[in-house]
Write a protein that binds this DNA or RNA. Sequence first.
DNA 1: TGCAAACCTAGAGTGAACTTTAAGTCGAAA
DNA 2: TTTCGACTTAAAGTTCACTCTAGGTTTGCA
Lengths: 151, 151
Amino acid sequence: MNYTIGEVANLLDTNASTIRYYDKEGLLPTVERDRGGARKFNEEDISFLRLIQCLKASGMPIKDIKQFVDWTLDGDETIAQRQQMFHNQKQRVEEEMARLQQTLDMVNYKCWFYDTAAELGSTDISCVDMPEDILEARDRSGIYEVINKEQ
Amino acid sequence: MNYTIGEVANLLDTNASTIRYYDKEGLLPTVERDRGGARKFNEEDISFLRLIQCLKASGMPIKDIKQFVDWTLDGDETIAQRQQMFHNQKQRVEEEMARLQQTLDMVNYKCWFYDTAAELGSTDISCVDMPEDILEARDRSGIYEVINKEQ
DNA sequence: TGCAAACCTAGAGTGAACTTTAAGTCGAAA
DNA sequence: TTTCGACTTAAAGTTCACTCTAGGTTTGCA
């Protein structure tokens, strides 16, 4: 089964220009054309676009994805490079998850802070006891000082 | 205690230009100047810069952080807006964590794939049984089709 | 007094990832 | 046959968050 660029864009919740841009950057070397010159996407192309979206979500820049594409085109000689690439990426994603958890701790603390301030009608909440879990979230977040005073 | 912009940049592992840029964008309305016009940062300013870094890490754009700063300057009238803002941000961070977990599943699958391919010296690993946990990670990642064939 | 280091501003430049525009082609329906 | 929508390209434009440059001041030490 083949798909047009518009169908693929719909399917992957993106738009045709973005897919053309990826193609121009060399990320889609296997996409074929019909007689009229229009791109023809098969299941494999769509699957690969999903992978690209995933790699992008993991913070990988386009030029690194391009490198990966080039390696896959080079075949089995480049298995080691691709293996290394994914192990590096795994570490990056794990670091990002840890950072995001810290950020969530901060946001949770701030949610409690403003929930409390909203009840009191004031950001001076120094009279209120901070629940244990909120205190822990705040400390984990790396946001310690001041903060109870303003913001 | 006061700090110069260079000291603050060091402390927060960023650089002076970035801090000046935040100031220019209105993110640091409380930073004072010395007689010569140089910025003078106190503990509170530094704490607020940490908060900015955290909000940025949560994916909040500068102009939204600016909005938050403006609200804090408006005082207790805007508690509800700030409360809403942090609750929205909490949802965004939670969504991002879920997306990142999916991405990690994909990367874990790919790590297994290339570890196996490296052992075999070939990306045709169809003869190899996929461990249960890897299969689950692959399925959670949303990357199903093809993939065992190439890449 | 002279010099270097660190600060200042305004404004230009950068890089990433799109996104839009202009001008054109293709294939099917009326 | 013409008209419409979806495709094509090259190239310019946009947005974001810096980052750098040029030219100038301030501060502290020898």
